[in-house]
Amino acid sequence: MSESKTLDISRRAFLSGAGAAAVGAATLVTPGVSQAATSDVPRWGMVMDLRRCIGCRACTVACKSENDVSLGRFRAVITEKTTGTFPNTKKTFLPLMCNHCEGNKKDGVPPCVKACPEYPGKRAKFTTPDGQKITYRTGATYKRPDGLILIDKEKCIGCGKCIDACPYGVRSFDPFVKAGGDPTKQAADKCDMCAHRVDNGLEPSCVNTCQGRARIFGDLNNPNSEISKLVKKHNLAQDANVLLPDKGTDPHVYYIDPDNLLHAIYTERKKKKLDHFVDQIT
């Protein structure tokens, strides 16, 4: 066996989100992708470039691995759909994950957070890159000031209300983690945008592994970030480029979709069902 060693991760490697290994040392280095250029609090988001998604599923498996996601459920999936009649047949790949919604215009609270009986809970402080502290309300499901919708499994009571409330059906019970608030139940789980990586200056695992560069992660509050430029260039901040705009959730996962595939192939989940959020190759 080789000696334990710490890899000499170059700054370039680090900036490209190369290593979860850097998590420990990350705070010592200038955070790369996650750095907000301004003193504003970042607003994390994702752009999915459907032109570039080749349906390879590296993201699905990277997510499983990064987050130890049990069998039978997913935090991120590719759905595929074949349409048309031979020989004019098409097949489309659509990556899905938590939309890290902003919530409706009125109160800015996404439906999952609203459904959580533990929200609003205690106040907590969020520290911006320049050291400002922002107060926000926690819950078992809550929105952090940087826009990430997170789950506190210690507080979760396993009631499943958030699972039902999410119109996208991205949430499920984690069979391996008990709800801290009611250990007779299992805690809710979903994509947290790899907050543990993001907080240490690394891209989410699915982004890191995407060979087509179909997933672009970054700070929407920073006009110079790649994601902001893409949102501007492709005019993504509109109904046509997000999922279920009529739900008023204000999703922060945007799709570059020149062929208008999104609304042709995405259907809303059936009530109480999660079977559309399973990654299967036919």
Binding site: S10, A13, A18, A20, T60, V61, S205, N208
Partner: peptide, 20 residues
Amino acid sequence: KLEGHPDSIRTLGKLCAKGQ
């Protein structure tokens, strides 16, 4: 965890589903 090697001129830091 397994991830692509960022310094590889072949893979440019990417790894496929099987690799992951």
